[in-house]
Design a protein around this nucleic acid. Structure first.
Lengths: 165, 165
DNA sequence: GAATCTATGTATAACGA
DNA sequence: TTCGTTATACATAGATT
């Protein structure tokens, strides 16, 4: 970058970091836009910045990003592999680890729920302050999740059928 | 860019486009990485390219991206607004629709659980063809979906209760 | 802080092996 | 096709207003 190399490390100075963030965020999204145009690919960028009002910043748009991310989630996380797993114990270790993670997630979720209840009880007029389109958005998201689950069901059923052959 | 300005439009030449894609994808992800480091933000990039084997390309990693995207989806799509909803009937219609969806969700969820039981009873052979990290991913994804749905259920129920007051 | 302004560092289009 | 190489366009750090 200009006028001096930048050490690739966290910028401790608040003002500098914020300025850099703003510039580079713009640059990143421009690059994404260009790639998308030049090569005709769908792309999205999501940035979670504690600075920016706790809402993620996205390119190209919230709705488009949601749509793409749904696709992403529907993609099979399981890649076909011919590698045979020789060590069953390894799998068991993994499973134990996963179960630990699940426990944490459940705890986290519970906390979030409680926070939400609390938040919504702050005032009685919650729904009165919701835009129709946002409600729409919410319905849309739920639909998407249904799709994802459906997809996984089918994947599993297919696996099952194939397994039986 | 070098040696000639690039017209910001779809590159029709296959070889050129592919080369450009590869270079720019690398550049984009590097930029994302730098932004993330310099400003300590979480960011992800997802590219759907018909070229690349129909699998999306992601930064920083599949798992990290999934995690971030779950967060993104959990973010309230509902922005605060001072606009008051004058038509209560509209809201009630929405709620009815939502309740219908919830019913479906419960059914789906039940199906899913059953399928999972089925899946787990396939016997040990299936696991032999799945990479450890994918197993990890799968469990994680399922849990995320459950969390998301749980979250939305609660949001809606709370909204409904508040409405009744 | 935000907007502008350069000097410089980077990314990359075109080319050649 | 996929690598290097190189000339240029672009992004941007630091300074200034």
């Amino acid at each position: 970058m200009a006028r001096g190399r930048v050490k690739l490390a966290y910028i401790t100075n608040d003002a500098t970091r914020k300025a850099t963030y703003k510039k580079r965020k713009k640059g990143l999204m421009k690059k994404a836009s260009e790639l998308s145009t030049l090569c005709d690919v769908e792309a999205c960028v999501v940035i979670f910045s504690s600075t920016s009002d706790s809402q993620p910043e996205v390119w190209p748009s919230t709705v488009a990003t949601h749509r793409m991310l749904s696709n992403f989630k529907m993609m099979p996380a399981i890649e076909q592999s011919n590698r045979t797993m020789t060590q069953e114990s390894l799998v068991k270790k993994r499973i134990a680890k996963v179960e630990e993670q699940l426990k944490k997630l459940h705890e986290e979720n519970r906390k979030k729920e409680l926070t939400q209840v609390m938040f919504q009880n702050l005032g009685g007029n919650y729904l009165n302050n919701v835009k129709e389109e946002d409600l729409n958005d919410l319905s849309w998201l739920i639909d998407q999740n249904l799709n994802i689950i459906d997809n996984k069901l089918h994947m599993r059923i297919e696996s099952f059928v194939l397994q039986e052959k």
